[in-house]
Amino acid sequence: MSQQTAATQSLTLVQAVRDGLYCEMDRDDDVIVMGEDVGENGGVFRATQGLIDEFGDQRVIDTPLAEAGIVGTAIGMAAYGLRPVTEIQFMGFIYPAFDQIVSHAARLRTRSRGRFSCPLVVRAPYGGGIRAPEHHSESTEAFFVHQPGLKVAIPSTPHDTKGLLAAAIRDPDPVVFLEPKLIYRAFREDVPEDEYTVPLGEAAIRREGSDVSVFTWGAMTRPTLDAAENLAGDVDCEVVDLRTLSPLDEETIVESFEKTGRAVVVHEAPKTGGLAGEIIATIQEEVLLYQEAPVGRVTGFDVPFPLYALEDYYLPEAARIEDEIRETVEF
């Protein structure tokens, strides 16, 4: 076993959420956590465990079951000087607050000619794979990416989780921070104990390669890396974890594609209107002449998230990703 240095601790992704919240609350009294059962219960996934003991119930607020009220109130708090971090228990519960997020949080700055800002974070676990029904499994990041005025971040590792969350909290504008609950406790990683940020808007190249670029994020990063590993020796895949979906790191997408000339996009959201389309359009606009094959998509189906028996078919997994990569490379 490697010797763990005093300056890091081995955390799961959900523990990194908690640690990120802790560090930001510790360094800035204006950071307030609020949501359903986030206080005494420590959050439905324990992402806020113990924060109420550290910071008290003025800064870790248990709210009624009222998502529109939670986010609406947080917008008011943000506009008048605080930095609220709201927790929505599941992404499928976010829609009562959708109006608040897209009609108000996203527009406060532009609507007020820059006189108001809205440094708000809306956290929500997203995605499938935990055998939960439709309202508890969806991945609708594209709704939020489509709305100008919002930033959208999705980490795939504990290290990035803490750093991206810190960046989101310190950002002067609203950030929808989506957490891949499938991998909340799937693995651990050494994470610095001190506060740090991972900048919004910067993708990470998880695996360098020269034959094909595979763009993905969140919980799909792991099966994508597995697929790349399985193909190694045969196909040299570059895996790019976008990390922030808005603003999209077009520079990294373009540079990677210039190198490979082929691409596959993997997301668990339904295909039609999903973010893969936007990434492909970016490639078409910026680097068409490098293109050697149609860009492949591996996505969820165009259906509401199905329960149980169909879930394993719905979610992209390594075999399906491998098939698409091969098809793209062999075109």
């Binding site: 079951l65 499928g92 519960f93 009562p96 029904p133 309202h135 149980y308 028996a309 169909l310």
Partner: peptide, 24 residues
């Protein structure tokens, strides 16, 4: 058809408009 699970049982004939995963 096994797509809804515990939280989405509905039956038109019985007048059951459906269980629901969303509070309210």
């Amino acid at each position: 058809n096994g797509k809804g699970g515990s939280m989405h049982i509905a039956d038109v004939e019985a007048g059951m408009l459906g269980a629901n995963g969303i509070v309210g």
